[in-house]
Amino acid sequence: MEFAGEQMQSAAQAQGGQNGVSPAEHRARQERRNALMLISPGVVWMALFMVLPMVMVIYVSFWTQTTFTVEPTLTTDSWVRFLTSSTYLASAWTTVRIWAIVLAATLVIGYPVALFIGLMVRNQTLQTALLVICIIPFWTSFLIRVIAWRPMLGTEGAINMILMKLGIVDTPLTTLLFSELAVLIGMTQIYCVFMVGPITFMLSRIDPSVIEAARDLGAGFGRIFFKIILPLSLPGVIVGAIFVSVMVLGEFATAASLSGRKVNLLGNIIVSQVGSLKWAFASVAGVILTIIIAAVITVLLRVVNLRKET
């Protein structure tokens, strides 16, 4: 199947000379054609089931929304409604805010971990073991990991219990669960490893002798960190940031489970609008989400030219 077309080669080759194409060039073309044939199923699949649906989202965002259905009469009504509604604009803002906070939190919390695993632990086995320990939770269902925060953060949850036992608080904290804080904690925990991984990878490639040499020259840790370690790990930070950003911006489950409907991300808007058959409106939210994601990735890629770095 993969190499179909080969059988015709000899026949076509005979003509090759007449067309002024050398047999070698003919064979090269044949091989390129075979390669294209191999990649075409994947390309067709992606075009039909990814590109086309995305185009559909843009298209339907201009359809006319009636109570329970959409009609393909083009209008900007849904756009106007979205852009003039403070609720929806607020959800776009919430999405961006949550993204920014989670991104910062995963970086701040994850970087020292990466620093330890990638740079301080020089034993290969221990390094791999620590990374595997970080990755193992991913073999638990994502939704289960989200739900696992409920008995942690609830009024009668583990954290409140510990805080009360230690005498830090007298009455249980009620802001831990069903709040924006719960969403932030949950997302940070779930996505932090995507930041730790790439940074660790970049840090582990730093030649220890470089740092040694800098130390011999009298550079303090701060100087070494900002002059050597940080710049060299930057591509890892960017890759991690892209992972985290893409996932957080498309999120809705964590907010649905842990915020008690107090946090409405664009993802949640899409889900609730689809639930009430407001397809055109969901599409508008979808397009705006796409624009935000595209903008974030573009900005991140501007910071470091990944192709050059790796």
């Binding site: 992606m46 990814m50 995305m54 185009v55 397809w279």
Partner: peptide
Amino acid sequence: AVFYLVILGMIVPGVLVGLGMALLSNM
């Protein structure tokens, strides 16, 4: 171009392609 087209599949949020596919199948 083909490389990025394929890689896009793991980047595009599920809720977006899900919505698009639902719209497509409706239509």
